[in-house]
Design a protein around this nucleic acid. Structure first.
Length: 563
RNA sequence: GCGCCCGUAGCUCAACCGGACAGAGCGGCGGACUUCUAAUCCGCAGGUUGCAGGUUCGAGUCCUGCCGGGCGUGCCA
């Protein structure tokens, strides 16, 4: 429709003096429905070139459009309003035609091919296996998964990837933590000490590392290890078996937790593989050959000042061990090598400082860094009993993603993380989420879906049939028209949300749809109406179900048929 | 100090890459269940969009400077 009107408008402007050759009119849906279905500000934009009042240009333009004339099967009215807007109102004929297309498309309604099959990689979660997934990981996971869904719905060939590192100091401390707990199980007489964990004192075996992981899951892992008596590790041996046991247990939990959230990764990329295939050192050599590196104080530095940073950055420590930046660069080079045209990284706000170095690294290596897009989301603040909960994986003070799902449910968890713009801090009041779960927005949407299913069931039980060939032109009630208009917006909303990577656009839109449906429900009955009208309304209700179902599907939220 | 994000109704947040009268939910107040699902609906109250300038026909949105909050700013990840 926008394209049609744009064509008409440009044609109407053909012999206008002073209009730029490349003038492209913009259209948008007015906030206020009284202003019509689509509006253009073309007259205001042209005012600059024509040196005339926008209002008078708009008047002349509208006259020319009406004189063409516009296709009455699409446009019902054209009027000039405000300071120079031209407002268009769609004809019912057009809406009904679009509604029919919606019904025919069914589960595919809202899909587009704008991605043209381009390969996209979305990397998210990417937690190291040192402890359970936290609420913070949850936001990252749900955001990434939904962005991936949005891209897939818009015709991208999407790969979902989880990047992790199971080597290094963190993992050694993890192993030592398990070993100390294990020792205490084997020998109950093990000397104890107390460790301060953010104000709380926790008892631990004397051999427990000072910066060890204090969570109870470490004890669980040690107990399970001990229960498997036949292959129980020797205390005198090295820490590796403890580390491995911990990693396996934690990773199994990752997958179980993500599955609960409806998340299924395509690939797990281990940082270690970049060492095994020498990619890390090859990357360093390439950077060095291009003159981006130098040695100082026994370390290898990356000349990031050449890219405008205040300081250069260490890639390899004087100990010979790379910092995380070098493998990160190698990893992203690998992503580029794998041929992805669109590379999206989902990062928490605490990682904002790291990615510029990666992008600089890619540029230095000759890759097109513009393919990489970093989506930063702000933190989640958990509030319990009116006070913010300080969270640290190492400390015992954190709420796991599983805890959250146990309390409020999987659907609510997903929806809450998606309700807000990624840029906004997310305040998650646990008590409120539990207590208010009955009035939760996600239930509102699911309820609308279940209610439609119920109505259609009931209508068929009492002998109404909503054939696909129903005469949809019988739909003319204001609530019916408003619902139709809301439903037909799904494709543009999904396309926009995908383009700006903002799932909350979909969540907000679905609420509008549910409201529009509820108003239709309040004004228009099906059972008891004349047969043809009932059939048409059943089709409209089906269309609403399709839109709600498809939208919830994109958000990864279940679509109950009864509640 | 510097970088990124944020500041909008009592609270939590929207506002479609500058548009018309800044919108929802929750909370508050007042109403509605012999009806296809009341997990619902209708109504009312609530705003100088942190402050001060600037650009523009037009600013919550863009620019500058302040104020306030979050996260970073490391030979940690």
């Amino acid at each position: 429709m926008k394209k049609y009107l744009a064509r008409e408008l440009v044609a109407a402007l053909e012999d206008f003096e002073g209009v730029p050759q490349d003038f492209a009119p913009e259209f948008e849906k007015p906030k206020n429905p009284e202003h019509g279905d689509l509006a253009t500000n073309a007259a205001m934009q042209l005012a600059r070139y024509l040196r005339r009042a926008p209002r008078s240009i708009a008047g002349e333009l509208a006259d020319r459009l009406l004189a063409r004339p516009l296709d009455p099967a699409r446009i019902a009215s054209v009027e000039v309003a405000g300071s120079g807007f031209i407002n268009f109102r769609f004809s019912t004929e057009y809406l009904v035609g679009e509604l029919r297309k919606l019904l025919e498309a069914g589960e595919a309604f809202g899909r587009s091919t704008t991605g043209q099959g381009k390969r996209a990689l979305v990397e998210y979660v990417s937690a190291n296996p040192t402890g359970p997934l936290t609420v913070g990981h949850g936001r990252n996971a749900v955001l990434g998964d939904t962005v991936a869904n949005l891209l897939a719905w818009n015709g991208y060939d999407v790969t979902r990837e989880f990047y992790f590192n199971d080597a290094g100091r963190q993992m050694r401390v993890l192993g030592e933590s398990v070993r100390a707990r294990y020792q205490a199980i084997v020998d109950p007489e093990t000397p104890r000490k107390r460790i301060d964990a953010g104000g709380v004192s926790i008892e631990a075996p004397a051999s427990f590392p000072e910066d060890g992981y204090l969570g109870a899951y470490i004890i669980d892992i040690a107990e399970r290890l001990h229960a498997r008596a036949e292959d129980a590790p020797d205390m005198a041996g090295d820490v590796a078996p403890f580390k491995e046991a911990a990693e396996q247990a934690i990773f199994a939990d990752f997958e179980r937790t993500l599955t609960r959230l409806g998340i299924r990764m395509d690939t797990y990329f281990n940082e270690r593989s970049l060492y095994e295939n020498d990619a890390v050192w090859r990357t360093l050599e390439q950077l060095r050959e291009q003159g981006h590196c130098y040695d100082r104080d026994g370390a290898v530095w990356f000349r990031t000042t050449a890219f405008g940073k205040e300081q250069d950055t260490v890639l390899v420590k004087s100990s010979g061990e790379p910092t995380y930046r070098l493998p990160d660069i190698a990893y992203h080079a690998d992503k580029c090598e794998r041929g992805f045209e669109r590379i999206v990284d989902i990062l928490g706000a605490d990682h904002i400082a790291t990615y510029p170095d990666v992008l600089h690294g890619l540029r230095a290596l000759g890759y097109d860094a513009d393919r990489v897009e970093v989506l930063v989301h702000q933190f989640v603040t958990l509030v319990r009993d009116g006070a913010p909960v300080k969270m640290s994986t190492r400390r015992a003070t954190y709420v796991t993603l599983d805890d959250l799902m146990d309390e409020v449910g999987e659907d609510v968890t997903r929806f809450f993380f998606l309700m807000r713009s990624p840029n906004a801090h997310l305040e998650f009041d646990l008590d409120l989420a539990k207590e208010a779960s009955e009035k939760n927005p996600v239930f509102y949407l699911q309820y609308a879906h279940a209610r439609i299913c119920s109505i259609l069931r009931k209508a068929e039980e009492v002998g109404f049939h909503g054939e696909l060939g129903a005469d949809l032109s019988l739909l003319g009630h204001a609530a019916e028209i408003a619902l139709m208009k809301a439903l037909l917006r799904l494709p543009e909303v999904l396309e926009y949300a995908a383009a700006v990577r903002e799932p909350h656009q979909v969540a907000n839109y679905l609420r509008e749809v549910a409201v529009a449906f509820t108003q239709f429900y309040g004004h228009c009955r099906i059972i008891g109406e004349e047969k043809d009208l009932a059939a048409a309304r059943m089709q409209l209700a089906r269309a609403a179900r399709i839109v709600l179902a498809n939208g919830l599907h994109v958000l990864g939220i279940s679509r109950p048929e009864r509640m």
